[in-house]
Amino acid sequence: MKKSIFNLSGPILLLSTFLLFSCKEDDAPLNPEPAIGAFEDEVVVNSTFEDLDNVTIDVMQSSGLGLRTTGMTTLCAGATVNHDLNAKKITVNFGTTGCTGPQGNVRKGKIIFTYSGTNFLFPGTSIVATFEGYEVNGYKIEGRRTLTNSGVDLASSTITLAVKIENGKVTWPDNTFVTFNSDQVRKLKLGSTGYEASIAGTASGKSREGKDYSLAITQDLMVKQSCVTTGVYIPIAGILELTYQGIVISADYGAGNCDKKILITYPGGTREITAD
């Protein structure tokens, strides 16, 4: 398995995963190696968008929009944050040459947040992220990502978020790209030692080869900040099912241990991999 060249921190990584299989004859054994390469491509796709969670938390905290937690600082020293209160618009500018954040991620370009309401802890409040020339570690990000507060349970300190990505696109340095759309429901439990999150949802799109795929989370993905801070940037539990050209593949993230192991099940076999 080739090494991933992409390393991003975020509360939630690998929201969607797809695998590609090829065989020359109907009864020939499936070769998992092409699937692993495509899997790593999807790691990049999810990492770039999931990294927005940490940026969003930083921006909300610094701008007085609520959702206080012990989130990791993601903004680099060269980034500027311009908050237009009248327009309810926040522009985060990482510059045209880019700057390196505390987790080693090099960002450049702009993220533009527009929001409703005065505090994200109020149900119905939404935050929309769009991009202008935005890149992370050389990967260009496009699309529209909307977070909407669907409800708050004060007794359990849990916020339910509807998360929608429209016209998502990640372009590699060689100009190949993945496009996708997704709908999720996330339950974010806040605490003095960090957050815990569960994720459900679906996604669909086209791979770098132009092939259609769709996926569904069949068992909620789970993420803990206590794992993220130790370098485990993927879900620690939950199952994804991916349908690609009539083939159903699953990815099992385990039972809650802070590790990087994923069990891939495909027609004809299983394979455990360790995410970089």
Rank of each mutant, 00 (worst) to 15 (best):
I236H: 13
M72K: 05
K261F: 11
S198V: 13
T265D: 09
L14H: 14
L121Q: 08
P123K: 13
Y253C: 06
D41Q: 09
D276M: 07
I247T: 14
C76V: 11
A87F: 05
G104M: 02
D27N: 07
F6G: 12
T56N: 12
G64Q: 02
Y253R: 15
E209F: 08
S207P: 03
G254V: 10
T70Q: 02
L19Q: 01
P235T: 03
I273G: 01
V45L: 00
I247K: 14
G101Q: 00
G66E: 03
T230H: 07
V185S: 06
S250E: 02
D58Q: 08
E33A: 12
L85I: 14
I112P: 01
K206E: 08
K2F: 09
N257A: 13
Q225E: 13
T130I: 14
A197Q: 12
P11G: 12
T202K: 15
G238Y: 13
L190T: 06
V248E: 01
D41I: 04
A197Y: 02
K3E: 12
L8H: 11
L30E: 00
Q103L: 11
V178S: 09
I199E: 06
F94N: 13
T118N: 03
G64I: 07
L147I: 02
E42I: 02
S214R: 15
S204V: 02
E40D: 06
P32H: 10
K89G: 04
I236S: 05
S63H: 03
I247S: 05
I199T: 15
K24L: 07
T56Y: 03
K24V: 09
C99D: 11
K211D: 10
N86S: 15
C227D: 05
K260F: 07
T218H: 00
Y139D: 03
K224D: 10
S192Y: 05
K108G: 05
Q103R: 15
L242Q: 10
S22K: 15
T80E: 12
N31S: 11
L8W: 10
G151M: 08
T80H: 12
S250G: 09
C227N: 08
V106I: 10
G98D: 05
L75C: 10
V43G: 04
Q245S: 15
E25W: 08
F18S: 13
N54P: 04
S204H: 06
S214N: 15
T130N: 07
T70R: 02
D53H: 05
F180I: 03
T176Y: 02
